[in-house]
Amino acid sequence: GTEIELESKNGQREHYTATSEDEARKIIEKAVRRGIKRIELRGASEQLIRDMQEIAKQIGLQYRTDGSL
């Protein structure tokens, strides 16, 4: 699965493990709508990382991946 670590603007951290790319995408989209400061992805697919970079650029988000592409 993909591990997703979120940090909201007030510094609250949340951790999710998505079993599918679809689920990961839903978690990320929800977080973005809620207003999130930072997202870290571990074990994400190349496609998901590309999507994440696109989203991050659009809304000026900090993100990090573990680089295991």
Rank of each mutant, 00 (worst) to 15 (best):
K26A: 12
A31I: 06
K37T: 09
L6D: 01
R50S: 08
R64A: 15
G35E: 04
E7C: 11
Q53W: 13
R13T: 08
R64G: 15
Q58G: 06
H15G: 03
L61S: 03
G1F: 13
G67L: 05
V32H: 02
R34P: 04
I55R: 03
Q47Y: 05
D66H: 06
R42W: 13
M52H: 00
S8W: 15
T65K: 07
I59A: 15
N10K: 05
K57I: 09
Q47V: 06
K57N: 12
S68I: 11
A56G: 05
R64E: 15
I4K: 01
D51T: 13
G11N: 03
I36Q: 01
Q53C: 12
A31M: 07
R64P: 11
H15T: 12
E40T: 15
E23V: 07
E29Q: 12
N10C: 13
T65Y: 06
A31R: 02
E46R: 08
I55T: 03
G43Q: 05
R38D: 01
G35F: 05
E5Q: 09
I4H: 01
R33A: 12
E5T: 14
R64S: 15
Y16Q: 01
K57P: 03
I28Q: 14
G67R: 03
G67Y: 02
S20W: 02
S45E: 01
R38N: 04
G11Y: 01
I59H: 15
R34G: 10
E14D: 05
V32M: 15
E14C: 15
Q47R: 09
Q53T: 08
Q62H: 14
R64T: 14
R13N: 04
R25V: 04
E3M: 08
E40W: 15
E5H: 12
A56I: 08
K57Q: 08
S68F: 06
D22L: 08
Q62T: 12
L41F: 08
V32E: 00
R38G: 04
T17G: 03
T2F: 13
T2Q: 03
K26F: 11
I49Q: 11
Q47I: 07
L69Y: 13
S20I: 02
I27H: 02
E46I: 11
K26H: 09
G35Y: 04
E21H: 05
R33I: 10
I27N: 00
I39P: 00
I4G: 00
V32Q: 02
G35V: 02
L48V: 03
Q12R: 12
S68K: 06
A44P: 03
Q62M: 12
M52S: 02
R33H: 11
G35H: 05
A18N: 10
G11R: 02
E40F: 15
Q58T: 11
D22Q: 08
Y16H: 05
K57D: 09
R34D: 10
G1N: 13
L69M: 10
K9N: 11
L6Y: 08
S8D: 13
T17K: 11
E23N: 04
I27L: 05
G67I: 08
I49V: 08
G43C: 11
D66T: 05
I36M: 10
E21L: 11
G35P: 03
Q58A: 12
E3Q: 09
K9E: 13
E21I: 09
R25W: 10
R50E: 05
E29V: 09
A24M: 05
R50C: 06
A44N: 02
G43R: 07
R42Q: 06
G60K: 05
E29W: 15
Y16C: 04
R50Y: 07
D66M: 03
G60F: 09
A18T: 10
G43F: 12
G67S: 05
G60L: 09
T2M: 12
I39M: 07
I28F: 15
R13D: 01
E29G: 07
E21W: 07
Q53K: 11
I4T: 01
G1A: 14
E23L: 05
M52K: 00
A18E: 03
A44V: 04
I27G: 00
I28S: 00
G11W: 01
D51E: 10
S8A: 10
I39H: 00
H15E: 04
G11D: 02
T19L: 13
K9I: 13
Q53L: 11
H15P: 01
Q58Y: 06
I59C: 15
L61N: 04
E14N: 06
S68A: 07
S45G: 05
T17E: 05
K9G: 09
D22K: 08
R50V: 06
I39D: 00
S68Y: 11
R38M: 08
A44R: 02
K26N: 09
I55D: 01
A31K: 02
E46S: 11
R33Q: 13
T17A: 07
E7W: 14
K9A: 10
I49D: 05
R25N: 01
E29F: 14
L41T: 04
I49Y: 10
S20E: 03
R34W: 05
E54Q: 10
I28A: 01
E54D: 09
G60N: 08
R50D: 03
G60V: 04
G1L: 14
I28P: 00
Y16W: 09
T2N: 01
Q12V: 10
A31L: 10
Q62I: 15
L48P: 00
D22A: 12
A31F: 08
A24Y: 02
E46F: 06
G1H: 12
R50P: 00
L69T: 06
E5P: 00
E3A: 06
E3F: 13
E14G: 03
K30F: 14
E3H: 10
I36T: 03
E23R: 03
T17P: 02
E21P: 06
D66Q: 05
E23S: 04
S20H: 05
G43K: 05
L69I: 09
R25D: 00
Q62S: 07
D22T: 08
G43D: 04
G67E: 08
I27F: 11
I28N: 00
L48M: 05
T19A: 11
E29I: 09
G43V: 02
R25Y: 10
